[in-house]
Design a protein around this nucleic acid. Structure first.
Lengths: 340, 340
DNA sequence: TGCCCAATTGGAACCGGTTCCAATTAAGCA
DNA sequence: TGCTTAATTGGAACCGGTTCCAATTGGGCA
């Protein structure tokens, strides 16, 4: 509750407030003797600058905002961890906004710049609309997208078309011909990776001379449970897929559960590949497409800090690589040992 | 970059700044006609109050801080989710501090109250020292602990002694007599649950007339990998335990891996029980002691908001229940079917 | 009609920093 | 020694709100 102000310090040290401020901010136009006097006074009074006042007069909030959707999603949490690692020690504070409902999104994106709450903004796994971007640019608020895309904003992401291609190609290379894709809803305007990966999936199929079969694609809300239900359906088709590509590891786990329920052995009877390489993937021995979740957050945050210092002329794009992590849920398609 | 201020609005509306402020803050001492004029001016100028200025003059930051250690820990993340759910929509912003190194802790706890950055503080899974508490109380900063303990601070937690007792008792009830405990380091001053659960474990053993055997307790840094190594050791003792109680689900997964590596069937040859009931526990079919992770965050945050409004005379404690969630990693001890 | 009180309203002072400008001091040089 | 210039320093003005106090207005009542 110490409301000792800079004026108290100035009085105690027998100097002017400007001098104290200069000492606090390391402006070097202060003689060593004076500096020592001021530091002594600060120490004696246990003075700490009031942040709100500093922010007001500097016009900077010394905070960066992070907008995160569906905080329950492990891949989002992992990206956030990357962000946190960079923010901690940058001198900025991290203000977290969670979006659980679609309506909240517009509110946040609109209000954050207006409220002048933060000096920079990180938007994770959420595609902004053109109007959002307009608003952001007009407010002159440095913004970086992580795992999201818009031509006018700087961004860190992966090539999801290629990722989907890689996953599908991996299964094709193992000899699979009937390959399912279990995904989030395709028509979610804020989630473009789901469409990109489908595109990669279709590209790989086409390349292999296989026609896309709509029975082999199911979409639903993003959850293990829902993925399980969709997989249960798909695996009970008259001519079920021998391999499934799941949009996320979370969903792949649902597929794994469905397979177990139906008595299909993985990988002998069914190959499963996920996407993300979340921590659970490792101990479930799930083959997956790895993307640098943590890195995307860290890199995005670094990029933001850089751009806050000197605003770039145009948006930069950092593309992180994806790669297959082979574990034990995919195997060569071999009709002779199959039980189904 | 609209720097339209309250004075612009006042001029435009032809009223005084005080009146505009009153309209903004819903003080009802404003006539309807004036209110309309002001609102029209606000609309026309697209005015939004400057947060920093408001914070400075009100002396409130409208933000709550959350200190979180080891953000990588799934149980911590889950608690944080609970916190986020309550903060969102409370009108407060959430400022997140991550502590990865022990040295950081003191810095944070010391500096946060001083910097007057937040109006309330939530400390998750980190026991404050007496000095920390002294500092906090002196700064008059409302603080609530989540999954941590100190008699002078309000807190939301579980009875870890009882939780440890429950877990061990469950194994004893299944007929096990050689029961291991795999845990974090006991001497970590900031982690008391690890000692509490050990106490419960020992209590249950004593009650069953079983002497505590130090070979059956291993401690190490909190990670799946380390738990795996410790389990590997313990399971290769001449007279290995038939059941293991792991301090956390994360560590239980490590034990699960060790068992698999050694060819021990779970639960036929080895029973494993974890603690927390994190999401992964469900799809790994891990028997565990459930504690309301999400709830603890939500309740803690609610408590904090309440106490920020009217400071309580003394600290409150909310004890959340724990209960066994039986899944498929524990079974009756039956020597006849054992392979080891 | 005149007086009193309550409801509104205007605006100065304040919150606690930063910054800029003018003033003072000291150093450098002829 | 006198003058120029650079280095320090003090402190008023400012950032953009809120709040309090004094002033104005209008209604109710005798």
């Amino acid at each position: 509750m110490s409301s000792v102000t800079i004026r108290d310090v100035a009085k105690k040290a027998g100097v002017g407030v400007g001098t104290v401020s200069r000492v606090l901010n390391d402006r070097n136009a202060v003689s060593e003797a004076t500096r020592q006097k001021v530091l002594a006074a600060i120490d004696a009074l246990e003075y700490t600058p009031n942040l709100a006042a500093r922010r007001l007069s500097r016009g900077k909030m010394m905070a960066i905002g992070v907008i995160v959707p569906y905080f329950t999603n492990p891949s989002v949490v992992r990206r956030l961890q990357g962000v946190v690692s960079v923010v901690t020690g940058s001198g900025y504070d991290l203000v977290l906004f969670d979006i659980e409902k679609v309506e909240q999104r517009a509110d946040f994106v609109r209000n954050i710049p207006r409220r002048q709450l933060v000096d920079g903004l990180l938007i994770v796994s959420l595609n902004p609309t053109d109007e959002d971007v307009e608003e952001l640019l007009q407010a002159n608020l440095p913004t970086v997208l992580v795992d999201a895309n818009h031509p006018e904003l700087s961004r860190v992401r992966v090539d999801n078309v290629f990722g989907g291609y890689q996953a599908t190609r991996h299964l094709l290379d193992l000899g699979h011909r009937r390959i399912g894709y279990i995904s989030d809803f395709l028509n979610d305007p804020f989630n473009s990776p789901v469409r990109d990966r489908l595109q990669g999936y279709q590209q790989a199929l086409t390349e292999a001379g296989i026609a896309f079969c709509s029975d082999y694609h199911q979409q639903g809300v993003h959850s293990r449970q829902q993925a399980r239900l969709m997989a249960l359906d798909m695996l009970q088709l008259p001519d079920p897929p021998t391999a499934v590509f799941a949009y996320s590891d979370t969903q792949a786990v649902g597929v794994l559960e469905a397979a177990r329920e139906l008595g299909r052995r993985v990988p002998q009877d069914l190959s499963i590949i996920g996407f993300d390489n979340i921590e659970a993937a490792e101990y479930l021995h799930l083959t997956t497409v790895q993307q640098g979740l943590y890195d995307s957050g860290a890199k995005g945050c670094q990029l933001l800090l850089t751009e806050m210092l000197d605003p770039p002329a145009s948006a930069t794009e950092i593309l992180l690589p994806t790669r297959i992590v082979m574990r034990q849920t995919t195997a060569v398609y071999d009709n002779t040992t199959r039980q189904v």
